[in-house]
Design a protein around this nucleic acid. Structure first.
Lengths: 129, 129
DNA sequence: CGGAACCTTCCTCTACCGTGGAAGGCCACA
DNA sequence: TGTGGCCTTCCACGGTAGAGGAAGGTTCCG
């Protein structure tokens, strides 16, 4: 399978595949006599795993870790579960931060909507921030 | 006021002040005979406005827009209100996306916690993603 | 006079995930 | 033989908000 086919089958670009290889998510692959990459069919499953992992919000670095465990012959499930737990924690914190920020912005917005622009003096730029 | 004093008074670094000047948030400032920047006292209010705006989640580009309006002699309040409204919309969407992702991750995590690693075959890397 | 602490400009680097393009090689079809 | 469509490598760029550091000038204090 050439890179264009593999990319199309996985719903990715050829650029992305080369990038993943460079980043260590795809092992160096066999080349034909013309230098073209020649992917074995099982690469497709790997690419789809990468897709699913990305959809779950994992970074390429985390995905690479998981793949390395699998490539070392071990089941990465425990690691994956830990990673997902971490991901949940991170998401919760991130969401909490954004929610707090939203509250703050909403308060400023309230003030700005109800206030009188004439009270805004040049020195403080804008009284609603 | 020299750059170090101004930075300390505003709780920023000298690097940040030079960067703000370069980005157009601070006007070119008077230099002493030694080339040192010499800030007028009202710069402090401007720096504090930048601080508050950043805390409200505005980008430097948005803050620059507001400052330009003020520097043009107009009250930026209406613009600020619009900016805050946009900010609210963006935050809501961002939070919604993260929340949806959290739900998805939580489902994967549930499966991973309850599942049996032995069922995970090498081909699909990990059945929990 | 010497050293610490300040200032200047300029260049590079950070994280993330690729995308865009240039220059060149290879292959099939008409 | 040409032309279009693949493929190769390598380099640059994007956005965000500065941080880090080099090389050099200045000022303050003892």
């Amino acid at each position: 399978m050439r890179i264009g086919e593999a990319a199309a089958a996985a719903g990715m670009t050829t650029k992305a595949l080369r990038f993943y290889e460079q980043q260590g998510l795809l092992p160096p692959v066999h080349r034909g006599p013309n230098g073209y990459r020649d992917y074995p069919p099982e690469t497709l499953a790997r690419l789809q795993f990468i897709r699913r992992s990305k959809a779950a919000g994992l970074s390429l670095a985390e995905i690479r870790n998981i793949l390395q465990i699998r490539d070392a012959g071990q089941a990465p499930c425990a690691h994956v579960a830990a990673q997902l737990a971490q991901q949940l924690t991170d998401l919760d914190q991130h969401i909490a931060e954004l929610t707090a920020l939203r509250t703050s912005v909403a308060e400023h917005y309230q003030a700005a909507s109800q206030g009188d622009p004439a009270q805004c003096d040049a020195e403080q730029i804008c009284s609603y921030l």
